[in-house]
Design a protein around this nucleic acid. Sequence first.
DNA 1: GTGGATTATCGAACGTTGTTCTATTCTGTG
DNA 2: CACAGAATAGAACAACGTTCGATAATCCAC
Lengths: 215, 215
Amino acid sequence: MEAVLTEAVALLDEAGDSALTFRALAARLGGGVGSIYWYVASKDELLDRATDHVVGQLLSDVQERTNGDDPVDDLRVLALMMFDAIVARPWLGAYFMRNSLLQPNTLRLYDLLGQQVLRLELTPRQSFHAVSAVVGFTVGTAADLGQEPPQEILDGRVGREEYLARFADMWRALDPDEYPYVHQIADEFAHHDDADQFRAGLDLLLAGLRQQAGR
Amino acid sequence: MEAVLTEAVALLDEAGDSALTFRALAARLGGGVGSIYWYVASKDELLDRATDHVVGQLLSDVQERTNGDDPVDDLRVLALMMFDAIVARPWLGAYFMRNSLLQPNTLRLYDLLGQQVLRLELTPRQSFHAVSAVVGFTVGTAADLGQEPPQEILDGRVGREEYLARFADMWRALDPDEYPYVHQIADEFAHHDDADQFRAGLDLLLAGLRQQAGR
DNA sequence: GTGGATTATCGAACGTTGTTCTATTCTGTG
DNA sequence: CACAGAATAGAACAACGTTCGATAATCCAC
């Protein structure tokens, strides 16, 4: 069982979403296809368990870093760690949203975020909304930014720099009257860093939360 | 071509993600499977075009509602319309993140959001981050909340109320010391409304943005 | 230690999917 | 009428998730 999950995760890490097939996994485990079905009832369940498996690792990393002075700072650290974990494993993002609250480790992670918010002493509704917002923003942004890059950048034919530069060039070539924002932002986009982008958005969200909590 | 996209969207709307197959689409169009490949090179392209097709409709709805007094209020309206569109079409969320900036209508929508942010007179970098944050939060949350509900709720065997109540019961049964937040939030969750949840999070984010812009 | 029940493994087979390929029909132009 | 390109059609292929019955390994009461 443990081996099944480990190899499944390894397969996902190495070649992404499409690499995890029952046949490939069986070959890797040195067994038959049917054997895997003794441990999991379907591919959906395999994915769910594999996801929760790595969330478990994230969880133990996270639990050491909590309980600082400021709840919002703690929240920030937790969100950043979640973000990093998803970016490091692009396949994670897509499955993070699915069934999230049914998997044990994910629920624990969710609660850990909630514990920080509880310290802000908001109303229950405000607490609920705050946690949902942080989770939604983190997972959504990470899944968006961490999506599998196109083939040409994956095998190193073109670097990230050049890839971004292409977009920037396309956008600069657009009519500034029709696309005033995209046209103006092209330079910024060409040299942007995903993690910076996430941190900036997260800080906006947390600033709003701070304001609501009166801190 | 137009008919292909229309029927593809209809198929997705009626029975979701898995219902859109080349064979089902061909049958619906009264033609052969191979014919579709004359219009689209792959299923990915079909999905991209179908997505951009409905974003086009959203775009024309959106363009009438813009240019209010307050840029942040406009931003709020735009984000809410995006959210509603994705919730109404759960399949949209998943494909919204993919290739978003390559599709013409999506790029235009992105620019429309950007135009509101430009009015706040932030630095280019701040503008870029603000738009990214709003888009990330909106799409991420909508995709998360708007995910396909499980089968039992889809065919009406159990209502939404009962479905949520089950979670609440499970959570109330947890050890309050181990899951203080989830335990406490159970009631709130049982009666929550997705749109409220989204609006509350969006308002936190926009409050942070307002603060940054000094308004 | 032996027999039966449970646990675990295996790979052939089935139905469905995206995609390719070749043959065929339609359409407009000289 | 002829012919080139646009457009359609469906058979065929490989890969996938899943099912199934046969078989091996392991355990446990007697």
